[in-house]
Design a protein around this nucleic acid. Structure first.
Length: 418
RNA sequence: GUGGCCGUAGCUCAGCUGGUAGAGCACCCGGUUGUGGUCCGGGAUGUCGCGGGUUCAAGUCCCGUCGGUCACCCCA
């Protein structure tokens, strides 16, 4: 056990039943993406390190500690992608997609890599599903993107809370941040060490502090929503109006912030219960400054990413269980029956029924046990009696009812009864 | 990166102050010469995460290491 090679830290293997739940979440997400007019984009799992160094705060923990960066044989510095927004915008700019019809609406299902210390709901490789809508700046698209995310949670059966905020444009923040810093300095004697450090490095993040006393002090801090310029104010109001029209419930949370400069205006986050301290199951926002920071033209965009593992965890903590199902299990006795079974199976599969047979040479009882543990809805029994009669026995596992049918009629029978 | 807890059968775990390993579930076989999900009987499985140390003796104590987990940090 010990000298066996194990998987890398924080990168768990995925197998049934959890993989089935993942499939379910991803499948339902993709269905909604398509309904909202999004098409798939795929980008490489690794990029030039420079891309993320440009997109992220230089010198921040994100860049210096939390990326998987390595050199290839050509001496190029590469990094496993720590998010999807930056690569998608890079691809759009590289292929001049923005010169065509806007907005571009892309969705993705993608593994993401961050070298953090694992904990509940935090892995070093994890899966995000999400969208990027690039080239539209009105509040309508913001609201629609949020509605889309909300719809996905509803479809997978997870209750979430939506927190909404506007963090303005860089101009708003240029006015606001000094005010926030001034306030923080005025109470710095009572703040925790981390918050004091953040006054200069990342004052907005003091709102995330978990220390009770600090939270109280922050309640009196000036808020970005109160400092928005008229344009940002109107935009934010437009988003809220749309959401209200559509009946999408949200709570305004002026403590919700983003760490990077290219984020603008709308920011949102979904949280669920039953997850421990990493309770965000998805989030997103507007990034009108990103394309420019990558050396491209001014190009607005908004998107979100949902954490598939966290959604699965939250569902599991609520007792949701998705069992792998099988439509038909074919149980056979003897070589001749086995041959007939192998003729039957392709017909059932062709007709759309998931079908399996015994591959371990088990006795009848064992085959039924296998069918049962696979949650088979039907078992078709083929033995000497059936061969002689030219009719197979079709058993409905739930009720125990059995029917004797000629092979040619079985597909039709199951189609009606399933 | 920091700290707490944990690491024994496929899974969940028991194993008191050191004396070379157990239960339940799952699995396989049988009771039912061809019928599961209930019941009864039987069976297989571990270098007790790894390395080192203390000791006559280590699953048990000590150190290290790897892994897991939870929290902090960070959160694109």
């Amino acid at each position: 056990m010990s000298s066996k090679i194990t998987g890398p830290k924080g990168a768990p293997d995925l197998f049934p039943p959890r993989s089935t739940l993942h499939d379910e979440i991803i499948g339902k997400s993709v269905e909604q993406f398509r309904r909202f007019g999004y098409n798939r984009i795929e980008t490489p799992m690794f990029e030039s390190t420079a891309l993320f160094e440009k997109g992220l705060e230089p010198g921040s923990d994100m860049v210096t500690k939390q990326m998987y960066t390595f050199e290839d044989r050509g001496g190029r510095s590469l990094t496993l992608r720590p998010d999807m927004t930056t690569p998608v915008v890079r691809a759009i700019l590289e292929h001049n997609m923005d010169k065509q019809g806007l907005p571009l609406k892309f969705y993705y299902v993608a593994p993401i890599f961050r070298q953090e210390r694992p904990q509940a709901g935090r892995q070093r490789q994890f899966t995000q599903v999400g969208v990027e809508a690039v080239g539209a700046d009105g509040p309508d698209i913001d609201a629609e993107v949020i509605q889309l995310a909300t719809k996905i949670y509803k479809e997978v059966g997870l209750e979430v809370t939506l927190a909404l905020n506007s963090i303005g444009h860089p101009g708003c923040r240029a006015d606001y941040i000094p005010k926030l810093q001034a306030y923080l300095r005025s109470v710095s004697g009572q703040l925790c060490e981390d918050c004091v450090r953040k006054i200069d490095t990342n004052p907005l993040r003091t709102f995330d502090c978990k220390v009770e006393e600090d939270r109280k002090l922050l309640e009196n801090a000036p808020l970005i929503v109160d400092q928005l310029c008229p344009e940002c104010e109107i935009h934010y109001a437009g988003v809220k109006d749309r959401l209200n029209e559509w009946g999408v419930p949200f709570t305004e949370d002026s403590r919700l912030v983003r760490g990077l400069d290219y984020y603008t205006r709308t920011a949102f986050e979904f949280t669920a219960t039953g997850l421990g301290s990493q309770n965000a199951v998805g989030g997103g926002g507007r990034y009108d400054g990103l394309a420019e920071s990558l050396g491209g033209p001014s190009l607005p965009g908004i998107g979100f990413g949902l954490g598939v593992e966290r959604i699965a965890l939250a569902l599991e903590s609520k007792g949701v269980e998705i069992k792998p199902m099988l439509d038909v299990f074919i149980a056979t006795i003897g070589d001749q029956a086995r041959t007939l079974g192998f003729k039957m199976a392709p017909k059932l599969r062709e007709a759309g029924f998931s079908t399996d047979m015994d591959h371990a040479g088990r006795a009848m009882k064992g085959q039924f046990k296998a069918a049962n543990s696979r949650n088979a809805a039907w078992v078709i029994v083929i033995g000497d009696k059936e061969i002689e009669a030219g009719k197979f026995t079709v058993k409905h596992m739930m009720s125990g009812d059995e029917e004797s049918l000629p092979p040619s009629r079985i597909v039709g029978y199951l189609a009606v009864r399933s």
